[in-house]
Write a protein that binds this DNA or RNA. Structure first.
Lengths: 211, 211, 211, 211
DNA sequence: CAATAAACGAGACGGTACGTCGAGTCTTATC
DNA sequence: GATAAGACTCGACGTACCGTCTCGTTTATTG
């Protein structure tokens, strides 16, 4: 009933079954959680969802896209984006939530990453997702900046990339846990870093000749 | 039988032929550099190296392992590990070198990462490599610590993971370049972060400011 | 959800493409006819048939099985099994047809034999085929026997094995042609052999004492 | 600088080790007897003989040639070639011996056959061997012929091919045993066949239609 | 008794074919 | 017309075996 001019053919054919979409996303998620990741094939996803493979490809362009959508859905559902204006508080909430969710969906994220590294389309999508996450963090940092104590704005990109970098790095290499302690430490570090350098010395970087 | 990698490589028996090993590693490197990464198959590596596929599998357990060894070799050859004791100088040299090499061998690194995410053996090896890189940076940071200026030592792991995290994150997502400017910015950030939390700039305070 | 009363699920999904089956069999046949036999690989068969290798292995367990089925098909299509009751006539028609077909498909038959000697599955199938051919000839001989002139029935197995033995022997070693002349000679020989021994002499085996 | 008067340098260096030759032949034989034939590779033969692979290829041109020589050796050692002039006796001894030996070395013979079907050189050698065996049988048949009772000589080739055909056919397909009983039956059959046609006894028609 | 030459055990090597696995497309029958 | 089942094409993977090549050693012949 979406035409404003009243279609003679109100609707032909079966509609897209929303339950099927959820089943596929859930199956992908579940398989990634349960198995080692090498068992997540298009066939197994389809079978686990009780779905034909073609249905999968009718709605997503590739396997990676399915994983990606599952990931985005999780990210949006689980990660808070509080903007109270209090830098330390906002940052803590955001990072704690992000780290927790990332840890829970580690194999999902790494599965998506793997796909993205092999498939340009998925890569672009994942890049977009990463950019949107950066934007969220950027907004938190800038909000605090505007509302108060922070004057340095140039190195914000570095700070952001350090943050998500640490996140992905620990996801990949598991060099240390991504728990609340890690979040707290990182919050301190970022705040220190963003404050005006106590030393009067400004890093006099004269421009680096970017390509 | 056109070995694209140069001179007649005499075919030694009984002992492992070192020239063959080099030819394979070189071919893997070259293919990753020249092509989009999807063209790097075991067949193409073997053919480019003028080598039978079996020889490849005689010495490496999988394709990923070959890429990995090529990567480790590059890392060791290209990245300096200066330990003069001057934190800022050492850090700058190390990060600049690391960033430059990583950028040059981006497709190699990402190729290895992709393989590692799909093959447990390769993953373990890559993890080991990452740990050894962390150790190098750790030694630089701790050396400076012992030799003077810095007293805070607890959050070193966070600093290290932030550093390599930023490196890998930018390799993957290309959110910003990994050039000398980035290195310089990061050096400042890390030093700030490692200094005593006294914003009143009192390095005499041995407290570490952790909450 | 297993029904105890047979297949509740008659058939779902795409059906086997008969054209593909024919294409594979034809390609195998053609390649064996055209080339020296060493060029008949699974890859070339699949490529010549315009088919993925996987399809080949979906329906046949090995390369030999494909050749075998091609052979059986030819045998059934080309060799007449006349049973008029007239021994000499029936035998002549059968042997002439068999010899002609065998000669035409010599490389096919030898290719199958080679595969069978290396692969137990193919061997079993070939054995079955040989048995069915023996049965056909056996029926001809026994039909004539029942309908008339021949009384000796015991040595029929020997006669049969001599016949197919000569066929295979000449296919393999090409010691003499397998033409109509050869068929005629063999017919005479077999009829003579099956008739009651004109001499009253029984072969008195003296025993030679060898193990 | 080749002397026309033979080699000025009669022999330098180590001589061929006869024990090695035997070890290789024995190993080939043993492996064929023990295993299913697919386990008889150049590597396993060499290893079983305690010999380097190169030694094998120093003296034989291919794997098939090794098997072939083992076979010929066995044939010469085991099969008697009696020529007393008594057709029935000679034939019985010859066939009994041949059948017994062939049965004992079945896997050897079939292994050789398999190699020959894939390797032209081995094929030629095997063909030569088969021809020499035919010649032996031919001499027995002709000797008897010359010495007396048999007048028909033209179909000797058919008789010979029927005989060895039955031998190989039963080796391959195991349709019936190759024991003394089989030999006795075959002797009767061949003698009957070679005698002047006992029924109407009209040897007056010499035309057989062969080209 | 050295120097030389060949045979030898070992096993790395180049190459060809094999049979398997997964991605994404196409077809059939059903709902 | 959307769906479940599953057959299809394509291409990469890792393995097996062949026959060649070289190493380092042993054994015989020659100077």
């Amino acid at each position: 009933v979406e035409s404003t001019s009243g279609p003679a053919r109100p609707h032909t054919g079966r509609r897209r079954n929303e339950a099927v979409r959820r089943a596929i996303l859930d199956a992908a998620l579940r398989l990634l959680a349960e198995s080692d990741g090498s068992a997540v094939t298009t066939d197994t996803i389809a079978r686990a969802a009780g779905v034909g493979k073609q249905t999968l490809y009718r709605w997503w362009p590739s396997k990676g896209a399915v994983l990606l959508e599952a990931m985005v859905l999780r990210a949006e559902a689980e990660v808070p984006t509080p903007e109270t204006g209090n830098l330390r508080a906002d940052l803590t909430v955001f990072l704690r939530g992000t780290f927790t969710a990332a840890t829970r969906y580690r194999s999902l994220l790494l599965g998506v990453l793997r796909e993205a590294l092999g498939d340009p389309d998925t890569y672009v999508q994942l890049e977009r997702f990463a950019a949107s996450r950066r934007a969220v963090l950027g907004r938190i940092l800038e909000a605090s900046h505007r509302s108060g104590g922070i004057t340095s704005s140039d190195p914000i990109d570095t700070v952001i990339d350090q943050t998500f970098g640490l996140l992905w790095y620990r996801l990949i290499f598991a060099s240390a846990p991504l728990d609340s302690g890690a979040a707290a430490e990182l919050v301190d570090a970022l705040i220190t870093q963003l404050q005006p350098s106590g030393r009067g010395s400004l890093p006099s970087d004269p421009g680096d000749g970017r390509l």
